[in-house]
Write a protein that binds this DNA or RNA. Structure first.
Lengths: 204, 204
DNA sequence: ACCTTGTATTACTGACCTGTAACACCGATG
DNA sequence: CATCGGTGTTACAGGTCAGTAATACAAGGT
């Protein structure tokens, strides 16, 4: 470690001089996602966040609650990105759907091939009473519902059924990227989604 | 524990009087699947198998290799069930495909809602050099390839693309059963699969 | 100067984990 | 009977983990 005597510059390594709580959350999200919830200890998180375990436990009552909060943040971020797509294609739900498909595929191939943080956590945390499970269920249901609304407003046939098909294709792409690789079936997600959408498009 | 003095009867609780190695494998498969690989220790496995840790380590060099062997057994069992479907519908690949869809859906709703043991292990074992990862990749690729061959022999359009769609739908159904529940989109897997198959059926 | 609030440091508990060592046992085979 | 492979039992090493206690430091407001 190199000492920085009187460096009062507020600009650091992006997450560097945020409050400890924010640094902890940011680092924990990365580590949990990349290596798994059970594989990362609180000591490592605290150190990577440039702080210590005591400060971590002053902000989060337990590791389980820290995990839950990280998943909430993942969900907020996903919602925000979807919001951006919605405003970009405002008034054109069909285009928003296509853009959504492309964005999801992009995540799969770019984000380290570790799939969906929420779904992964659901696999790792089999205990039914884990505080993270409530978050996972709520978020996933919300995402499915939003997809249903999007399909409905795009005037496609059987919007709920279509949304379920797209939802399962996406979930399958994200999880299978971890077993058969990112260049497997997951890489064809856009084509598949478009094919399924086409089969629900009312013929003029 | 109740003593059984001179009970030389070979019939016990099914897995009871098999060789220790088989009992360990059987118990380990159940525990790993139900609670996760990282959440189950070797001590618990040995005890549940009616033996001890030393005997376990005489048959498996490490826990990681035990996990890999369990996954191989899962794969063998899945292959065997698929073989049975194939012989039952010999000469009628289209019917085999439908039966396969039904069987997969049945597994999802009946098997505790914990999805696919291989895919779950891939999520839990993020280390790229874990001995189980080779097994997972081989098996998953093999299953996709078998599905491709089935779609091809059923004379459906674009068999590889169709097989990928069905593969992702299935993987998505199994993983999403753990987040949104078994009665969510996963319950409609048969209908979805049939819809996708229909869109690849050459219009006679 | 004082107090308060948040943070850093260090050390610790108690539990759990994988893996091993040493030794007793038991049943089959010679 | 004797040997021997597989098994049971106990104890232990060495590590990691979540979570806590006690104390010191640093900055802001009054």
């Amino acid at each position: 470690m190199i000492a920085k005597p009187a460096d009062s510059e507020p600009r650091e390594t992006a997450t560097e001089r945020l409050p400890p709580r924010d640094r902890i959350l940011s680092v924990a999200r990365d580590l949990f996602y990349e290596r798994g919830v059970r594989a990362v200890g609180v000591d490592e998180i605290a150190e990577a966040a440039g702080t210590n375990k005591m400060t971590l436990y002053r902000h989060f009552a337990s590791k389980d609650l820290l995990v839950a909060e990280c998943l909430r943040q993942f969900a907020r971020q996903a919602d925000a990105e979807w919001d951006r797509l919605a405003t970009t294609h405002a008034g054109n739900p069909r285009a928003e759907l296509t853009a959504w498909l492309a964005a999801m595929t992009d995540h799969i191939v770019s984000a380290g091939g570790r799939g969906c943080a929420l779904a992964n956590a659901a696999v790792e945390l089999a205990e039914k009473d884990h505080p993270a499970r409530k978050v996972i269920e709520e978020v996933k249901r919300g995402q499915r519902d939003r997809l249903v609304r999007l399909c409905r407003s795009a005037a496609l046939d059987e919007p709920e059924f279509l949304a379920d098909e797209l939802f399962l294709l996406l979930e399958g792409a994200r999880v299978s990227a971890q077993s058969v690789g990112r260049d497997g079936p997951a890489a064809r997600l856009v084509r598949m989604g478009e094919a399924v959408i086409a089969s629900h498009t009312p013929h003029a």
